[in-house]
Each structure stands twice: as structure tokens, then as C-alpha cells.
């Protein structure tokens, strides 16, 4: 039997759910619990929470089949809206300020794997990527959904582009996003990348007071 080590992991009250480390039989695991939001209308709140919990589990399973590394689901309780899943040790990509272009290329490839399987992550930011043993693990599929539309794929990457921009002060955002697109092209092909780039352009112009270059 594996000797259990003590893990330091303070509970996180995320925007949508509470994430905490629990003991799950012999190994540590993550418990994700979507609690009631006091600000939200009860009926709406219940619909959203159960829908998201069920979809997250379904999508985690499908994502795994595409070869993308993500946490294994150990247990689901739809009645209390909680999921127990594998605990992944590592560093958030967000905190890895000097992360090289290689990691972003892998991220792009993983994005393409998901998209080709019809999965849109929905919250693809650097805080939802764990760097572990040189590989990446995607987490938080809480806003994920199934879609084959270019628009949804582009929105997924547009969000990543914005996240790179807003969390970066060293001016690496553009080159990092280029690495992501490069990786995406490795898997989905150059035509897909071009189509997505065009669509991202359109999305950006739709923004408030966008600049028309």
C-alpha cells in the first residue's frame, strides 16, 4: 500500500463551487461542491447547479477519452451537487511566470483534442491548467459543453487570449498565444487555425467600442 503523504491544500471558495482536499479511502482527492448561491433565484439556482454538475462529469469522462489529461471522477452525488475527483499535484500555469512556449504549445494541442471531440472547455484560462511532471492537466470543466460550432471554439480560445493578456505584465501574451495556436494547428490543421483566427477577429470586433483596424 502506498504511504499517504500530507498534502497542503487550503480549501478554495471559487466563484462557482467550493474545492477542498478530502481523504477518499487510501488516497487524497478533491471534493467539488456547488453550494446554493444566496444571490440567485432559488429555481434558477437549482437548475444551474444540477445541470453543471451532471455535465461536468459527463464531459470529464469524454475528455479523458480524447487523450487529454484531466482528473478522474471517483464519485458523483447529483442530489447534493458534489463530485469527488482525483487530486492532481503541480503548479498552476498562471503561477508559472516563466513558463516556456513548449507548455503553451501543449495547451494548444489539448485544446484541439477537446474541440475535435466536440467539447468546448468554456473556461480555458491559465488558472485552470496544472503543470505536472512536464505535462499539463486541464481542470475545472464546470462551464464546459458540447458543440461543433467554429464560433464556440473561437470563443474558447478568445477567452484564453484575454486571460493571457490580463494576467501578464511582461508583454509575453502575444507570443504565448501564438504558441497555443501553433499547437492547435499541429492537431487540427492549419485551416482550422485560420478559421478560428478569423472568428476571433470577429468576436473582438463585437466587443464594446472595438477598434476597427
Amino acid at each position: 500500500m502506498k504511504v499517504q503523504t500530507k498534502h497542503e491544500f487550503p480549501p478554495i471558495q471559487g466563484a462557482e463551487a467550493k474545492i477542498e482536499l478530502v481523504d477518499w479511502y487510501i488516497a487524497p482527492a478533491i471534493r467539488k461542491h456547488r453550494s446554493r448561491k444566496a444571490y440567485r433565484n432559488d429555481q434558477l439556482d437549482w437548475i444551474l447547479r444540477t445541470k453543471r454538475t451532471k455535465e461536468e462529469v459527463e464531459i470529464l469522462h469524454q475528455a479523458k477519452l480524447t487523450g487529454v489529461k484531466c482528473p478522474k471522477v471517483l464519485f458523483v452525488d447529483p442530489a447534493s451537487n458534489e463530485i469527488i475527483m482525483e487530486y492532481i499535484q503541480g503548479t498552476l500555469l498562471k503561477d508559472l511566470l516563466e513558463a516556456g512556449s513548449g507548455l503553451f504549445r501543449i495547451l494548444g494541442r489539448y485544446g484541439a483534442f477537446l474541440h475535435l471531440a466536440g467539447i468546448i472547455h468554456g473556461d480555458l484560462t491559465t488558472k485552470n491548467v496544472i503543470v505536472t511532471e512536464g505535462d499539463l492537466c486541464l481542470i475545472d470543466f464546470g462551464l464546459s459543453f458540447f458543440s461543433d460550432r467554429v464560433e464556440d471554439r473561437a470563443e474558447d480560445l478568445h477567452l484564453l487570449k484575454q486571460a493571457l493578456k490580463s494576467s501578464d505584465s511582461s508583454g509575453n501574451a502575444a507570443s504565448r498565444f501564438d504558441s497555443v495556436l501553433e499547437g492547435y494547428g499541429d492537431i487540427a490543421g492549419i485551416e482550422s487555425v485560420l478559421a478560428i483566427k478569423r472568428q476571433i477577429g470577429k468576436i473582438e470586433l463585437r466587443g464594446r467600442y472595438a477598434q476597427v483596424d
Binding site: Q13, G14, A15, E16, K37, R40, N41, L44
Partner: peptide, 18 residues
């Protein structure tokens, strides 16, 4: 109101946590 404001509150909470 309920839907639009809940959306915005959730987005704001996300940004706060970010």
C-alpha cells in the same frame, strides 16, 4: 432581471476570485 443580474454577479465573483 434575475437571470441577467445573476450572470453578472457570477462573472464578478469569478473576477474577484481571479
Amino acid at each position: 432581471q434575475e437571470t441577467a443580474f445573476a450572470l453578472l454577479t457570477e462573472a464578478t465573483e469569478r473576477a474577484l476570485s481571479f
